[in-house]
Design a binder for these strands. Structure first.
Lengths: 206, 206, 206, 206
DNA sequence: AATGAATGAGCATTCATTCAT
DNA sequence: CATGAATGAATGCTCATTCAT
């Protein structure tokens, strides 16, 4: 309930290292055994520490889960932004956005297995909505920014920017979901190409 | 351990009614409070029965959850199939498939809030994959059938049927996810139109 | 709590048959799966009836268990008495008592597996003592009667009748226990001979 | 599922003390109320701790029961062995074996009340047989060793060693059973004398 | 005489959390 | 910083028992 009382605001080096270590172990355990099977004891076991230590470094389970989610989303966000920003043309930005999304997922499948499981950790509608905003709003905003650039640069034609951002991001997430649970059922590379193709055919028409 | 204390193999009328009633209450509770907060006691409370009765009608929690999932997927599947089959043209079939998917979701938002939560109920990778097959395989198969019809009827051009089915279904699910958690952030009707538009522009090009 | 209210004192034919059938099934289930695993449902399953019917024919679980124990002890008692009474000499009576005890056990191993398990069903010291009296008092009394006859007929010398009855009956039960759980570890026939031999050497000395 | 939340392999002092304390309380509760009435909650209540703590120190109920049984059997075994080994003559060893068995039982009646009840805790035939081996094999082996020494030292005549060990141990256990449930019905001292007498008369004959 | 639906108390077990050391 | 002992509430599940039909 109360935050660490004996602590200054600035986390120490070891504090930060432990938190990162615990978050990684938590994500791994969640991905392997599912959220409901992931207890502090289970995380601690895989790390060679005691569960008391986890309680010491996090303000309860909710804090741990929240931190884990932010870690994943931030890492993915940076990965994509870096690559998209390197492209001058909007149509390349969009293509790279899709490709980088899938690339990151492919390299961190475990993170996404865990992420899907973590939806189950939100009990109230408010928490779910808050998570939704954290997860989707920045993505849609990024896509909409690309669309606007594309229009300013006369690369893209006319379409509903709001809806299209939801559709493109949705397609990325939806394909990811299928791949996460059954990697052999979906080829991410081909899917990326088809998705980018759908869009470019649409907007370059006029 | 033991399935039931009664003799007959075929369920009675009251048995069926109770199971349906319990499944509905379970879905509602899951949607409202999340899977992890949904205990037999919680479901029973909302129904005015005892938790022992739930254990009497279901072979454990896994049976209840499985039954609930199948109920949702079957209902949605029938709803869509009925409407798609009524269309002679493949391009209409595809459009109706997308629209009907969103319609059903819109009318049963609670089911899908629950469905997403239920992913968290699968602990092993095997269970997750099994669920994935139950959920996605029929959808992708249905889409691929529409694509084949479209090609036979010379309505559609050439594209990777496998990947396209994953992308279209993924887009539907991905948009649904955004809407389920933040209904005000996405307009399902507009999204359906943009998605159908993306595809028709693509395939009618040549 | 209350006995069958709609019933006359005289049990009907079908009533008796059902009780016997249920007792037999109960003994078999207890022998096979242990007392703690033996629920009404389990007994009913093996019989093709419902557990409600068992509750109808017995005044609760305690009644069923008590009836089962009495069934076993009475049957064994009759079997032994019949054979002992056929012998005129006390030393033969004693030998036959031992042999018949083992014979009966050998033919009804299941009954004794169950009997040992049923000890666990008595919760209070009073119940245990009551069972003990039901089980042991008649046996020791029978042995003591044989001893007295032997003395009257000048076959046996002097010894503590009370203690000797406990020792002989104890040896029978103790050997039975070893055999019941590990039939290959004890040969009942040889044990009977050694036990009878111990006694006859002792009392024929003077 | 998970054994313990701590890291070290060797138990601490407090750990050992708690386990012993809990085992003692468990034996007492079983002796007083019977195995089926002995829940973690019941044991904890008599100890002033919570049932969670019992689960913390033992790997489930089976572990607790197994530990309790081994505690009893080991203690009794040591008590007897110590006294038997002090005797040079085989006939004294045998007499002391019988006397020490009864002495120990007399001093720890509660243990044996519990032990008899614990038979009911084994559900499968395999578990029962395993327990039987743990309980009886060492006893019979000890007796057979005494018999062999007796023969080597020309104290004992000829008899079936295997069967005799079963009969003597059986008599000890069988008398104990009668005494445990009805202490006033059997005098352990007299019984010990009669039992030892039976044997010595038999083997010293030739 | 028999069934099946329903109950309610009890069970072992899990787990996040607290805290003295 | 870190541990290990302890808590207490919650969970899925079992089961004898009741009762209307």
């Amino acid at each position: 309930m109360n935050a660490k009382t004996t602590k200054s605001d600035q986390p120490t080096f070891i504090e930060e290292a432990r938190r990162k270590q615990i978050i990684d172990a938590a994500l791994q355990t969640i991905a392997e055994q599912g959220y409901t099977q992931t207890s502090f004891a289970e995380i601690a076991k895989g790390l060679g520490i005691t569960k008391g230590l986890i309680a010491y470094h996090f303000n309860g389970k909710h804090d741990l889960i929240t931190s884990a989610i932010h870690t994943i989303l931030n890492q993915q966000g940076h990965y994509i932004k870096e690559r998209v920003d390197a492209q001058p043309l909007a149509q390349d930005k969009l293509r790279i956005y899709i490709e980088a999304s899938f690339e990151y997922i492919e390299q961190h499948r475990q993170h996404f297995v865990a992420l899907v499981d973590l939806w189950g950790s939100f009990t109230s509608a408010e928490e779910k909505q808050a998570f939704s905003q954290t997860a989707y709003d920045p993505c849609r905003a990024h896509l909409q920014k690309i669309f606007r650039i594309g229009r300013e640069q006369k690369e893209f034609g006319d379409f509903d920017v709001q809806a299209m951002s939801a559709v493109i991001q949705g397609a990325i997430d939806g394909v990811m979901l299928q791949w996460v649970f059954a990697p052999q059922a979906v080829n991410l590379g081909t899917a990326a190409r088809e998705l980018a193709g759908l869009f470019s055919d649409r907007v370059s028409k006029k």
